[in-house]
Design a protein around this nucleic acid. Sequence first.
DNA 1: GTCTATACGCAGATAGAC
DNA 2: GTCTATCTGCGTATAGAC
Lengths: 184, 184
Amino acid sequence: MREAVPIRRIVVEARELFREHGYEGASMRDLADRVGLRPQSLYTRFPSKESLVREVLALTLDDVLVDLPDPATDWRGAWQTLIGRIAETFETRGRCVGLHLAYGVTAQTPDARDAVRAFFVRLRDVMAGTLKAGTISEPASVAADTLAQLEGATLWITTEGDLEPLRHAVERALRVGEREGRSM
Amino acid sequence: MREAVPIRRIVVEARELFREHGYEGASMRDLADRVGLRPQSLYTRFPSKESLVREVLALTLDDVLVDLPDPATDWRGAWQTLIGRIAETFETRGRCVGLHLAYGVTAQTPDARDAVRAFFVRLRDVMAGTLKAGTISEPASVAADTLAQLEGATLWITTEGDLEPLRHAVERALRVGEREGRSM
DNA sequence: GTCTATACGCAGATAGAC
DNA sequence: GTCTATCTGCGTATAGAC
């Protein structure tokens, strides 16, 4: 009898594979190798490769939102934490799982597509709620723009290893509401 | 005897496949179907799937740079043309081939990876040269940031069909140098 | 929950006829 | 330049023993 592999471990490794290789490029064989199982054994835990997308994004959302300062009492602390966590992952991993999956899922994987959509909408909404608590104008729009700028900066990390655009995006994000009348 | 398929036609279709499905998700069979050939026939024109990446990006760079106004005499016209062409493609197609390929190529496809790197560096350098002609400060940095912001905005087109973040990115880009002391 | 065994199709790529 | 035929390996996924 082998030791059962923790389900979280599988999801974490799946995330690394999706981030690096995308939806199509990630294989159940590679995932099995990483966690020390046979490919077939993964199917007792997850009905399909597609179903892993939802799990991976749920875990990721959790990582970003856990123990967030309460925006109602400390909106700027919450905002800085959000931006900081997102940027830190991008710096460390060089890219964003969510973006790779967003580009990788198609009409052939509708469940995965829904999961990706829900992930980004949720993240944007949390960001927007935080800005709203800080009485920033057009919070939803600013949240979407901010996320887009952070994501876009990963282009330069991936291709050139250049972290500067990401740092600039973070600086702009943290200056939000500096003088209402837009600095972005 | 069949009519020979123009090579440009193949590259254009390959670009659509790479844009939509990424490097791994695009198959030579699908490409063959699109241009009305047997998969094997593609190999008389291109030595491998990987080699298509360079062709696709060369064509794309050409599309962006053809007949560009001379930055030396009309830097703002050149800048507006560059931003306009990039944004128009993103609006029409919903996403960027270059970004999908940037995320999709790995150490297993070194030639493709080099091609992607060269593509973005070249594009950034042309943008930077344009800004330099307009005596914008830190042209290379602003060019990289601008490209990142346009690319990042495709996240919302892909996931939600929302064009607003792209339009905001374009507005910011066109305001470059408005009052030197940074508006971005 | 993991394993062995296996199904079946699609992937990229090559050989050689026309 | 395109075709038919074919190779070989990997992809997701299932059946059933332990």
